[in-house]
Design a protein around this nucleic acid. Structure first.
Lengths: 224, 224
DNA sequence: CATCGGGCCATGTGATCACAAACCGTGGCC
DNA sequence: GGCCACGGTTTGTGATCACATGGCCCGATG
């Protein structure tokens, strides 16, 4: 995850990846599921089950799982059983603070490079979010929301920082679904519009505030 | 690396770890070596070689390597060969910025909980650093320096954030050695003393500045 | 003498297997 | 009725093996 030397196509594989190894296929598959909230917190996984599902032996399944455990996307009991972690409130707050820290910086670095084409793409993604929210599609919402952020942060030209932000998303994945199912429909892309406005205006303080708010807002209602 | 559910004894194993699995042993061993700069940038590793060295088969060696690759501590070529990464100047600058971002926040969170006992321990570590620097012991210097920071940040009660900071240290490990061999002896614990002074005074802005300086100073001279 | 090609060797990958430990359900006992 | 012990079954771990691929050295050739 953190800056593998390979390309990291989180949102769908690239066109011409020559020969994706088995453990990479499994890793990507599980990673998407976790990041986009398709696995509930506390759900258990078994190596043989993963192997059956992806049609590989236990070896690649183990490597993929090990990697996700290392990234905090899965947790492993002392006996080696793996499951998606159930985050404590303190942990959720800490991860939200990390998102704020990293993503504010990323957006700030992206600002000077944000041209009109980027802003248009963000607006397109934003309207996708509206559609998907109207359909009560939690997974689609999370995916589109993260794509919005990722598209912006890619402009920051800071791969290590982006990788860390994605690791935080990954750790929050299972929890995020629980959040977005109880989300009010109307308020969804509110801060996103503020972000776009600040980008257009070249308003750095406004952008930092908008990103921080967008990132913090959702998570705050989760720690009841 | 990132918040494994197990305890993470980076600086020497705990007393009563019941049955450390083989891949964990290998992982910890390689991780220390990398983080403390005992492996040069670009140095190659082989699974069978690691297996021989730690007296295990290829399987645990593979898992440990995979994990370190995921953390950015090792890089893997398209053909699967692993080596310690040779960082570009942009990457080094980015990682230094990450250190500043994360560690300033960590120190700031540790400040309200920093009591006298902690400050004394920091001073003890600091004198160790002076000794070790006098002996031109690069690895010892890096180890003691990181222990100084880690001791402070542990008080922040922010395990995910600390884990991310350690991941950055890990990525910088092989490069750090190259840095500290060309370090002037006298200036070593300068900013550390500023950090301790700010802690004693409860001076948060001063602490943030001192940490940022300490973290940035060394790395800056590396990007010639 | 430089460059290209072929063949051997080392290396990573993934499958399979043996083993030990943990989990779960059942039955008995208090 | 609740609690505990026990055995079958599931699960993770680590070793070993077969295979394909890439690297590297050496020799032949222009």
């Amino acid at each position: 995850m953190l800056s593998s030397s390979r390309s990291s196509p989180i949102f769908g594989p690239r066109a011409s990846d020559p020969a994706p190894s088995a453990h990479d296929r499994v890793y990507r598959g599980l990673r998407s599921r976790i990041m986009f909230g398709q696995i509930a917190p506390g759900e258990a996984l078994t190596l043989r089950g993963i192997g059956r599902e992806f049609d590989v032996s236990m070896t690649p399944a183990r490597e993929a799982v090990q990697r996700l455990v290392a990234e905090g996307a899965l947790s492993m009991s002392a006996s080696g059983r793996v499951s998606t972690p159930e985050l404590s409130n303190e942990r959720i707050e800490e991860l939200a603070a990390l998102r704020a820290l990293l993503e504010v910086e990323l957006s700030s670095r992206a600002l000077p490079r944000a041209h009109m084409a980027l802003i248009e793409r963000l607006q397109t993604i934003n309207s996708t979010i509206s559609d998907v929210v109207a359909n009560r599609d939690a997974v689609g919402y999370i995916r589109a929301n993260l794509e919005f952020h990722r598209t912006l942060y890619l402009r920051a030209q800071a791969p290590a920082m982006l990788a860390m932000a994605e690791t935080v998303w990954l750790q929050l994945g299972p929890t995020m679904r629980a959040l977005y199912t109880r989300l009010r429909r109307s308020e969804a892309p509110h801060y996103h519009r503020l972000i776009i406005a600040a980008l257009k205006a070249g308003d750095e303080p406004g952008l930092r505030l908008a990103v921080r708010s967008d990132v913090t807002q959702g998570l705050r209602m989760l720690v009841v």
